[in-house]
Structures are given as C-alpha cells and as structure tokens.
Write a protein that binds this DNA or RNA. Structure first.
Length: 426
RNA sequence: GGAGAGAUGGCUGAGUGGUCGAAAGCGCUCCCCUGCUAAGGGAGUAAGGGCUAAUACCCCUUCGAGGGUUCGAAUCCCUCUCUCUCCGCCA
C-alpha cells in the first residue's frame, strides 16, 4: 500500500509514477472521496466527543444523586446522528481502502522505462552460453530418455502442469535444495526456517497477492478457507506482521525451502511442455527485513546471494532490471536472474529479486523502533528466489548434458549425490 | 472428536456498567541523593488515526476479532479466532 498521506498530498505525483507502469490512477475520483472522508471523519469524531462528554457528566450526576432525566433527554438523538455519520464515514473509508489496496507500489527512480519484458535492461552477464558440438536436447527429451522424468504419469494423477521425477533426477533436485539452503545459511547469513504451506487470506493481503490476484492462487475447499502458498515469501514475510522490532533486531535474513502452488491462470498456452511452468514446484526463498533506507543496498546483496548459487553451479546467466511495465504489483524495483537453457537457446527466469520497501510492511503493520526517538516506523521488506529448484534442475540437465544423453553432476552437488559425477539412464 | 479454562500495555497481573487508556509490580528512560559497581527518592514510559507547517496542542479509536444491549462497556449478550489443560485418536 502507498502511504495514504502521500496520496492526499501528492496524488498527481503518485499518478505520474504509476503511469510509468501503464497504470491509470483516477486522481479526481480519489480526491473527491478523500474530501468526503475528511469532513465526515471530523464530524463523526466531533459527535463521539460530545457523546463521551455527556456520558461522563451523566455518570457524575448520577453519582451525586442528581436527577438524570434532563441530561438523558439532551442526548436523545445523539446516538442516531452519530450512527448515520459513522455509517457514511465507513462507506467512504471502504471505498478509499479498495482504491488504496488496488494501487501498485511506487516505482523506484532507477527502474528503466518500458512496456513489457522486451524492454527490460540487461545489467550484467556471467559465464558464456555453452557451445555443444552436438544438437542440444531439452530437459524433456533428456529426462524421458533417462527414464527419470514422467509427464504422463503425472497427468494420470493430477493432470497437466505436474511432473513425476524418479531416481537420480528426484535426488538431484533434493541435492540442489540442500546445496542452496546450506550456502545461504553458512555463507550468506540467513536463518533457515520451516513454514506452513497453507495460509489464511490475511497473510496474502499482507504480501499483496490479495485482494487483486486471487485467480493465481489455489484455494482449498474445506471448512477453513486456506490458500496454498504461491511462494514462501508469503509465510516468511508475514513473520513481521503486527510486529515492532527493536532497532537492534534488524536486519534479518530468512531462507526457506517450500513447494509453491500456482494456478497459472492467464498463462494458458505458455510453456505447456516440460516442467518450466508447473502448478507445483520447489523453491528456496530469501527474505530480508531491513530499516527504511537500507533496502536498496539489501536488494543488491540479495540478488548477489541468488547469483552466487548459479556461479557455484557454473550456470551461465544474466541479470536484468525489470522495466516499469514489467515490475510486479508490490515491488518498487526488481532484478530477474535468467539462466541459460541450451535446449531453448534462451535465457529463462530462474530468480526474481524485489525490493517492496514499505509497501508490504504498511499492509502488515511491520515496524521497527528507531534508535533515537524510539518511535515506530515501517520496515522495508525484500524477497527473492535463491533460486527456483525446478528450473535450476532443468538448467543443470541442459547445461551438463553429454552427447549420449547422460548428465554430468556439477561439482558442488556431487557430495549430495553420493560422490558420483554423472547420471545415466535408469 | 469429547470436557474444561483463558485471551488486558515491553513482561507479570488487578480490574465485572460511569471520573479506566486502564491499579500494582517488574523492566526501561531522565533527574536527585549517595564517595564508590549497592540502596533510596522523584518524574516519565502503548499503538493507530484525525487536525496541523509540526514528531506542538487538541480530538477520536483500541483491553484477541467482529457484531449487539446502554446516555455510557475491559466489564453484560452473541458469533468467530487463537492459546492452554485433561481424555480419545494420530504421522
């Protein structure tokens, strides 16, 4: 959520910023509502004040044994007046809140202009796309010919966009996850966490998947209307919900491995083959809680931590700064890390690292006490994939393939694979 | 699943219709005293919102959440959520 005070004072500036995203903010409608809110709130609070004063004097009079009747008569219609004002105020505030919850975050000035993916700015590349002296196979071909990857079995059980992995491939994904968690906890200062995969709507509102993007989520049919998490960002970031951290508590870095569940509504026809885009995938997530003013540095650090994983795996990648039109709803700035996939001859997203500044914190009431005046102020939250395990698996398969269809195991993963260095057909 | 208890400020914990945003203790901050790492005395110490140039006044809201009764609710009524105890079941 954008600071309501800023919206009131500088609606036009906000609209100009959001316009960079292609988002239209109807400032006139907002300002009109805001004027109503102001007068209604002042009147309502005035009436509440009157009510409090009269109740107090009635109490006093009664204690002294005086006649209360005239006092009661004097406030007879106060309740009704208050009730109608309150109802009107509430209605206006709900309308304002609907608008506010629907506004995307302000973009950081450093975000490049642009409409869509094609306008994203390459920031840096690492490594060089592998030159194979044979025709590269994609992960589907590789996995199926090794008898370790079965889409038909998955379809039989759960339909499209699911995968069954077996043997060394299943183990390789587990190895990737272990390797990533160990790297982040041992080298990058993250605390490992284990979190719920089912969450309540409140948590999703806090991280801004709701109310706007419900169609992207799986909601379970049960007495309790849980949602399956689309990313560990949701449970982990909500650690900070309704919390006031001590100044010394921050910064905090958390990591978690979870499955992620996404309906992929709106991506029909995209990546229908293979396991690039699944309803369920494994991911290691990184989350930072930092003081306001430190989040831009934190974003660079966080992105670097995700990159480190690919470097250790020796997978070529590039980092792109998402352009104004491509930055997600709640983010002020986002770097995507794209890994090279020989099977597609393309860089594909494997991590997305975002600074939400106070956008999520305001929704979650996540604050810290400042050092000096000791006053609560909103913290900044960040998150990024460190990295998506399913896609990392694809990247390893395709980048480490041999001509005979076997797959070499990256050196850093070998300890997790019983010391072996290659995966052969089962 | 059955039976019961409870949710109050940073913590412990009073408070069952009126001057309670809330006793007391602890903790914390500042000051005083004390010639010695102790003790004592005093003051202060919630969050959110409105108004505003203001982090100054003033006002409003909040005692798990949401409704209700009342001139007035932490206190009474209803619903929900969560926590705890015992029994049962269970990875």
């Amino acid at each position: 959520m954008i600071d309501p005070k800023l919206l009131r004072q500088a609606a036009t500036d906000v609209a100009a910023n959001l316009a960079r995203r292609g988002f239209v903010f109807d400032t006139n409608a907002y300002i009109a509502l805001e004027e109503q809110r102001k007068s209604l709130q002042i009147e309502t609070e005035q009436l509440q004040s009157e009510r409090n004063a009269s109740a107090k004097s009635i109490g006093k009079a009664k204690a002294q044994g005086e006649d209360i009747e005239p006092l009661l008569a004097a406030v007879q219609d106060l309740g009704d007046r208050l009730e109608s004002k309150t109802a009107a105020l509430q209605s206006v505030q709900e309308q304002l809140s609907d608008i506010e919850l629907g506004l995307p975050n302000l973009l950081d000035d450093s975000v490049p202009d642009g409409k869509d993916e094609s306008d994203n700015a390459e920031v840096r590349t690492w490594g060089n796309p592998v030159e194979l002296d044979f025709d590269a196979r994609d992960h589907i071909e590789l996995g199926e010919s090794l008898n370790l990857l079965e889409f038909e079995t998955a379809a039989k059980i759960s339909g499209s966009r699911f995968t069954v992995m077996k043997g060394d491939l299943a183990r390789l994904q587990r190895a990737l996850i272990q390797f990533m968690l160990n790297t982040h906890t041992e080298e990058h200062g993250y605390e490992e966490t284990y979190v719920p995969y089912l969450v309540r709507a409140d948590a999703l509102i806090g991280t801004s998947q709701l109310p706007k993007f419900e169609e992207d989520l799986f909601k379970i049919e049960a007495d309790i209307p849980y949602y399956l998490i689309p990313t560990a960002e949701v449970p982990v970031t909500n650690f900070a919900r309704d919390t006031i951290f001590d100044a010394a508590d921050l910064p905090k870095r958390y990591t978690a491995h979870t499955p992620c569940f996404r309906s992929e509504a709106g991506s029909h026809g995209q990546d229908t083959r293979g396991m690039i885009r699944q309803h369920q995938f494994e991911k290691v997530e990184l989350v930072h809680f930092v003081a306001a003013g430190e989040s831009m540095d934190a974003l660079e650090a966080l992105t670097g931590h995700a990159e480190k994983i690919l470097q250790k795996l020796e997978l070529p990648y590039r980092v792109v700064a998402l352009c104004a039109g491509d930055v997600g709803f709640g983010a002020a700035k986002t770097y995507d890390i794209e890994v090279w996939l020989p099977g597609q001859q393309k860089y594909r997203e494997i991590s997305s690292c975002s600074n939400y500044n106070d956008f999520q914190a305001r929704r979650m009431k996540a604050r810290r006490r400042t050092e000096e005046p000791g006053k609560p102020e909103l913290i900044h939250t960040l998150n990024g994939s460190g990295v998506a395990a399913g896609r990392a698996l694809i990247a390893v398969m395709e980048n480490y393939q041999n001509e005979d269809g076997s797959i070499r195991i990256p050196e850093v993963l070998q300890p997790y694979m019983g010391g072996r260095s290659v995966i052969n057909a089962a």
